[in-house]
Design a protein around this nucleic acid. Sequence first.
DNA 1: GCATGTTGACGTTAAATTCACATAAAGATA
DNA 2: TATCTTTATGTGAATTTAACGTCAACATGC
Lengths: 258, 258
Amino acid sequence: MIKADERREEIADYVIKLGQVRIDDLVEHFGVSRMTIHRHIDRLAQQGVLRKLHGAVTVQPSGLYESAFRYRVTVNRAEKDALARAALDYVEAGQVVMLDDSSTANAVATLLLDVKPLTVVTNSVSTAALLINVDDLDFICLGGQYHGTYNAYIGIVCENAVAQLRANVLICSASAVTGTTAFIQDPNVVRVKQAMMAASVKRILLVDHAKFDRIALHVFDDLTSFDAVLVTEGLGDAQAQSLERAGVKLRIVKTKAS
Amino acid sequence: MIKADERREEIADYVIKLGQVRIDDLVEHFGVSRMTIHRHIDRLAQQGVLRKLHGAVTVQPSGLYESAFRYRVTVNRAEKDALARAALDYVEAGQVVMLDDSSTANAVATLLLDVKPLTVVTNSVSTAALLINVDDLDFICLGGQYHGTYNAYIGIVCENAVAQLRANVLICSASAVTGTTAFIQDPNVVRVKQAMMAASVKRILLVDHAKFDRIALHVFDDLTSFDAVLVTEGLGDAQAQSLERAGVKLRIVKTKAS
DNA sequence: GCATGTTGACGTTAAATTCACATAAAGATA
DNA sequence: TATCTTTATGTGAATTTAACGTCAACATGC
């Protein structure tokens, strides 16, 4: 409920203020059971706000800027989580995974911590904050010009950096989809994403069904270019069948948390 | 994991206080087994805080690592601030400034906020955190493989990214200086710094005088390659004159806070 | 090659975390 | 109001994990 959210926010603020806190300190400070504290911080860790250690929690290492985004919450969180979980089917331990700057891919990053060892490549600052200093995980950040709107590095420097690399799998998202075409609003972002497509063996697109039948300024790519297009449930049967007939490897993901 | 962290911090404090301690003293002082002490100091040595000798540990002389503990951040703070303030003389509004991953350059970044508009380029995550979302400041992050010890992106990806850019001025530091040669400990870091040298019109080196008459593993560059070498006061007159005779554009910076 | 310091493998212990279940509170529905 | 559902919390056992110690093999010679 609301009360739990407030409590979580209090916990996050407390941990962020102190940098690192022992679980028992939290138990004492908030006067609740250890189990409850665990449940709260598990959720905060899922959101990427905190990181759990044995016996303590810390803020994400680059908490400086992460804190500004820490409650940039959860528009369609359930959908993103469902897509992210489904996307794990396309990742195996030991692979090189490329993630774009979408919040959906960011959700994937939190789950990737369970698929180590891995090499992860991204241009997203939020995702970088999640993956820095994780053991058994080789992290490569794509540099470039910082763009606050996307909280990511983009531009020529970024495109060239991508072109030097090869990933087993790319997990990305799009602004809008109409017919079998995916769109992206920003011209510089679309170039980075297209470079990522070219640098990846397998390509997975994650899109909320609400993005269908919309357009954005720039064409990203055709849905048939992806090895899998994961969409949240809610797409009409007729539309789904039409996409599959067009050769799109469509997969509908159930949102409901089992 | 947490208890071990605290124990490691205690050990580090103890060693730093005494300068050099025998392992058996640590065993006795902390009442744990020799093996445990070894494990702790191995980790501290890996973090660059301590150095292992046979039968003893000393503090690591080169105060270059950003990553570790709270006291490390404040080591030689006054010197770094003085150098950073002096370095501002070489930066003008509107220029492109490149900063390396040193904590000294990070100190410069905090002061650059008063020289806007600027374009700043760096591979340091700490510095990136400072400069993200600053108005009137174009920020370009150099990507690459993340290295926790330096809290920076390094490696081939980073070197190539640097090679694409040109900066008006580079502000950087070194691990050690002997004669007219500057050294860097890490082979990958030195390559990034050398790429930065090649990509910059003007080059400024900032070094604490305590780093003189020491060496590190890799040769970075000759002091005469820099357009200015800023050193904190404490260098002997004879040594200063000798450097100037060798063609080094030396500038002694007073540490005393006004 | 001796004495001392160091490393690695393994087992033990203590602790943290998770799980299953029970309880309590808040909302919804009729 | 009564009761039914949903959500938050607590309890204690079961499981997992980390820290440490011991001993034996190895390396080194501040």
